[in-house]
Design a protein around this nucleic acid. Structure first.
Length: 843
RNA sequence: GGACCCGUGGCGGAAUUGGUAUACGCAAGGGACUUAAAAUCCCUGGCCCAAAAGGCGUGUGGGUUCGAUUCCCACCGGGUCCACCA
């Protein structure tokens, strides 16, 4: 007896049929039809050699369910798929196995494609993209050149073509070279010497976002600080917009919060401290500090500079300091400390810059100046005014070195010992102090950010070549658009170098090139782009993936953008998600994205959680607890696998894999299958449902629909189980109800529902059929169970008519034997009736 | 140290957002069918009590309320992100 769902015979058949009929192909419509579109997006996968993880299908299925429902509700759905295929693991694999990264990528994509297709997602494969395809990265390179050719207009608060930038006369007066340097210093994509995070294991420079906590995001090794000329992108200019525009989009709150924290805006003031040498008197130098508490300036009893602060070099060179040896020694020690060590040991260390004094602009006092590594070179101005009375760290330092502590804010939060500020509350004192600073030209209101510019250079092979030629005469010259894409040359060895030079530098035939501008011999930039480049705009390419005239036709962008629902991992919150929002805004400012698309790429962002191994520990090869999707599909079929991953728990919570749990879902589908066999082997038992089942059916339609919209995927499956359990006892069953159940099931188990749908005689796909509607009038049953509470405890339950009046309810309550027994003669003080639910009697 | 989140049966988890706690599923025990097994079907199932009645129960202790898993306060435990950020 065939007791189960024969998925082997069915799933592949429908996958082929759907592909043949193109039922998942999104149609490009005129922008005026925008109301009909739905763009659902999952983060396109990195095709690693390990193949698909069970975590991938969790989010793909979730968005598959949402988009299938949208399609059944009549929307023109775009649910695309592609490959984010540049990156280190592939390159490392290629090096180890002596194959070309291109070939490894091709093989991995093939494997991922096979796996993903076997799960039956409604992806529009005709729009498949691959970031390593020259036809794709041509546009990544083109965009980089647009950024190179742009500057940020601080007045308008947006990026503009650099050709429109005004050159100050003073610069112009210094000649062409000065103008060129000035222009280069203003570009949105610029090359600059900077201290970067260097991972000695991966042999690569990392962006701050990739080196959080001082360790390499990929390998976990602790990073070193290295000075290197790097291509950077000026994301800091967008800090405010990246924060402020979050209020116009629907992101999970923790995602928005994390981005805001990462950008780290803090408001305060710059304060200038004049420097005096002990022996030489007033010097020309000024140390500018940043503070969020300008109101505590009167309590600033010393100054601290980061050890790498450039003014220290000046004072060393000019012999203004008396203890040069001590200072150099301290600097050396600081350099050796990795970020991790600095975090572990928070004891305050430092050295006084003897011979140097700073003048507190508020008090006129001369205060000592120190170098200490608890002040970071990369944040604010790299120098602080120390107010030990009101800052814990300054206090620790002051204690360690016996420095003066002066209280300037009372415990009630009122300024004291602060001259003009005395008696003011902190908020007002801040305002007044900033006014004073500005009037006396010793400071100004200022915002600072934790966010740094985006380090965009990588010293590896498997990435997009940065399309710049470096010419001795002309400086940085972009590769002409007609010569794009600039492809990677074949290379003998992909190994990264310890010197921090890209493997491309060794390919002289590729590096040496005529300057596109003057024709003289020049060299190509040999750094490549980070893997975040191609993923920063891929959703735009999905709108028009085969265009070879532009990255996308503006008319198509107008129709499809923004993305309606974007799902991805929390780990990308301060990486891909932040970068791509920035990239989009930059293109938007430069008029490459139509106004109609809006200034944010994603309308709604949600996040999946992890699937853990059995027992709740993370799946890993070393623990041997990895579940392979391929095995699950062979054993249970795609639909059971999909449905189990949804049933496993709330979508936004981690959940452990449970082999027994998947059996339960299998039983559920098997049960429907057997039910359908019974129904189709007899004359159809046409006839009405009982009133209870009729109500349950309509309630289930409502619940399944609302839960899908709310991204709750475990509860609608429970609801469907309850409905099917009920219907399996029904004596009669209308055909439209049977079809309705299949439709509700279709987003979750698309092959299964399609097969039974076809068996019922339907000739077009269930996935193109109309989503069932519920009748609000049928949501309420004709009777309900009235709960009667006495003093908050349930004492009786009676079945009553739904249209029972409050008076009748109270009457029933007071005549209940159990209530009478409980009251024991006492007179109720209060009777509360909650309509359709319960009545509460209290004494 | 800061920000945010979470504590419900043996397990994964429900609970209309202040209204019957433990839906649904798993595992377990008992039974039916079977020579037997698998599959399937039926029954039981928070704790205390022999059962009923009753009492106790959503990490702990308080509070608000006719009524609290839900709201407020304190504490305990766990998690995530950030962190010498001035």
């Amino acid at each position: 007896m065939a007791s189960g769902y024969p998925f082997q015979d069915i799933e592949k058949k429908w996958q082929d049929q759907w592909e043949k009929d193109g039922i998942y192909h999104a149609k490009d419509l005129p922008a005026s039809e925008k109301g009909r579109k739905f763009f659902g997006l999952i983060e396109f996968p990195y095709p690693s050699g390990d193949g698909l993880h069970v975590g991938h299908p969790r989010s793909y299925t979730a968005i598959d369910i949402v988009t299938r429902k949208q399609r059944m509700e009549g929307k023109d759905v775009l649910y695309p798929i592609g490959w984010d295929a540049f990156g280190l693991p592939t390159e490392n694999y290629a090096i180890k196995n002596k194959v070309k990264p291109q070939d490894a990528t091709k093989k991995n994509i093939g494997n991922f494609t096979r796996q993903i297709k076997s799960i039956g997602f409604g992806f529009d494969w005709s729009r498949e993209i691959d970031t390593t395809d020259p036809k794709y990265f041509k546009w990544t390179q083109w965009m980089f050149i647009q950024f190179f050719n742009a500057y940020f207009d601080d007045v308008e608060g947006r990026a503009r073509p650099i050709s429109q930038m005004a050159i100050p006369d003073v610069v112009r007066a210094h000649g062409d070279e000065a103008v060129r340097q000035y222009v280069d210093s203003k570009r949105m994509a610029y090359k600059a010497e900077s201290t970067i995070n260097w991972c000695p294991r991966c042999k690569i420079g990392l962006a701050n976002e990739e080196a959080q906590g001082g360790v390499c995001e990929r390998c976990g090794n602790s990073v070193e600080q290295r000075k290197k000329a790097q291509w950077m992108i000026r994301i800091t200019k967008y800090a405010d917009r990246l924060i402020d525009d979050l209020s116009h989009v629907d992101y999970l709150e923790k995602i928005a919060t994390q981005q805001i924290n990462w950008i780290g805006r803090s408001e305060g003031a710059y304060v200038d401290f004049g420097i005096e040498g002990e022996t030489r008197g007033q010097l020309a130098d000024i140390v500018t500090v940043f503070t969020t508490r300008p109101d505590t300036l009167f309590g600033a009893t010393y100054l601290v500079l980061a050890p790498e602060h450039p003014l220290i070099d000046t004072w060393l060179n000019e012999k203004d300091v008396h203890n040069a040896d001590e200072i150099l020694e301290y600097r050396k020690g600081t350099k050796l400390k990795s970020d991790l060590q600095r975090q572990e040991n928070k004891e305050k260390t430092g050295v006084e810059l003897k011979g140097i004094k700073a003048k507190n602009p508020a008090t006129g006092e001369l205060i000592s100046v120190w170098a200490a590594d608890y002040v970071l070179g990369g944040y604010g101005t790299g120098a602080i005014m120390a107010v030990p009375a009101h800052d814990e760290r300054d206090m620790e330092f002051a204690k360690a070195f016996g420095l003066e502590v002066r209280t300037v804010v009372s415990e009630e939060g009122v300024a004291v010992n602060s001259g003009l500020l005395d008696g003011l509350e902190t908020k007002d004192a801040k305002v007044k102090m900033i006014e004073w600073l500005e009037q006396n030209s010793v400071g100004q209101r200022m915002k600072t950010y934790r966010l740094r510019d985006w380090v965009f250079s990588r010293q590896r092979y498997w990435g997009e070549p940065i399309p710049i030629v470096i010419c001795k005469t002309c400086g940085y010259v972009p590769v002409p658009e007609a010569q794009l894409p600039l492809e990677l040359p074949p290379v003998e060895a992909y190994e990264p170098t310890d010197t921090g030079e890209s493997p491309l530098a060794a390919v002289r035939s590729w590096v040496e090139v005529a300057c596109p501008n003057c024709g003289k011999s020049a060299e190509r930039e040999t750094d490549t782009m980070p893997n975040w480049a191609g993923s920063s705009w891929y959703f735009l390419r999905y709108c028009d993936p085969h265009n070879d005239k532009a990255f996308a036709d503006p008319e198509k962008l107008k129709f499809w953008m923004p993305v309606d629902l974007y799902n991805g991992g929390m780990e990308h919150t301060t990486l891909h998600l932040l970068y791509s929002r920035f990239w989009y805004k930059l293109l938007f400012d430069l008029n490459h994205i139509p106004r109609e698309c809006g200034n944010e790429p994603y309308r709604k962002r949600r996040s999946h959680a992890m699937i853990l191994g059995e027992g709740g520990i993370k799946m890993s090869k070393s623990k041997g607890n990895v579940i392979n999707p391929d095995d699950m599909i062979v054993q249970y079929g795609a639909d059971v696998f999909r449905m189990y991953e949804m049933f496993i728990g709330p979508y936004d919570a981690d959940a452990p894999w449970d082999t027994n749990g998947i059996e339960g879902v299998k039983r559920f589908l098997d049960k429907i299958w057997r039910l359908a066999e019974v129904l189709s082997s007899e004359p159809w038992p046409e006839g009405p449902l009982t009133p209870e089942l009729e109500t349950l059916y309509h309630q289930t339609i409502k619940k399944v629909g609302e839960d899908i919209d709310a991204m709750h995927f475990n509860t609608p499956i429970s609801a469907l189980m309850i409905l099917v359990n009920g219907l399996s006892d029904a004596k009669t069953l209308p055909r439209h109800v049977a079809e309705g159940v299949l439709k509700l099931l279709a987003p979750f188990a698309p092959h299964f529902a399609e097969e039974l749908w076809a068996k019922m005689g339907n000739t077009t796909s269930i996935h193109l059929s109309a989503w069932p509607a519920y009748d609000p009038a049928k949501l309420v049953a004709s009777t309900f169970e009235l709960v009667i509470q006495v003093n908050g405890k349930v004492r009786d339950r009676i079945t009553v008519s739904s249209d029972i009046s409050e008076e009748e309810v109270k009457e029933k309550a007071m005549t209940s034997e159990k209530v009478i027994a409980q009251l024991d003669g006492k007179i109720p003080q209060k009777i509360v009736y909650v309509k359709g639910r319960l009545v509460s009697v209290s004494t």
